[in-house]
Amino acid sequence: MLEVKDLHVTVEGNEILKGLSLTVNAGEVHAIMGPNGSGKSTLSAVIAGKEDYEVTSGSITFEGRDVLEMEIEERAQAGLLLGFQYPVEIPGVKNIYLLKAALNAQRKARGENEIPAPEFMKLVREKLAFMKMDASFLQRAVNEGFSGGEKKRNEILQMLLLEPKLAMLDEIDSGLDIDAMKIVADGVNSLRSEERAVLMVTHYQRLLDYITPDYVHVLVDGRIAKSGDKSLALELESRGYEWVLEESAA
């Protein structure tokens, strides 16, 4: 599904990713862990199309398409969706508008008609209930005045509605209390299926207690230094990152 090959990325003259390769197949959940500054967030941001990131070499393909040649919105329409670590506040744009415009953009890209209002509302209300969010939320401006937990839930709500093929979650667990974490994890887990994949970037093992990954990768200095299954995350939790650093230096 997603194929990242020898990816080199520079931000403001600094090389952040230095030859990262990663393959994500449909049905899989991947967790990327690593110390601060290792380039974890850069990977998902580049895949989503963040403009300040310069890809100097390497490739990203998604279902055979060259992602780097696609516009930001085309990537989303193709089913690549990024859940932000720090969702941006958009004053004046109501959540309901964003949700409807986004869903219709996706349908339009697939050659489908706009969703009728009643059908849309039914769908949104269903997803809202799942995320334990109040309907009044729809009339509020996107993320404006939201608590950290509300912002993260909002990201997942968008995912539930847009049903991405590959959901990328950038530190979706940061700033969440345990109750909010469970709701967010339930949301992500409900997205799991044979056709879909999840790529989550996290600093903490805690999230992986709720969303069990098939693969865990340790990112060190812009490269994947070690890959394993969920037991690797537990090992990192108890031993820290030093041993991986030493191993990769050796």
């Binding site: 989503a48 199309g49 963040k50 403009e51 516009e71 930001i72 919105e73 990537r75 989303a76 329409q77 969706l81 990024l82 932000f84 969702p87 941006v88 506040e89 958009i90 004053p91 004046g92 744009v93 508008y97 964003l98 415009a101 986004a102 953009a105 996706q106 890209a109 401006a141 996107v142 968008q158 847009l162």
Partner: peptide, 28 residues
Amino acid sequence: DEEAVFALRTRGIDEQTARGLLTLAFAG
């Protein structure tokens, strides 16, 4: 806010619409 433009585009909304939406939101 260019970050907001980016955020909207990452949800599949084309750039022109995203800018239009934010401009209208300003007039809101």
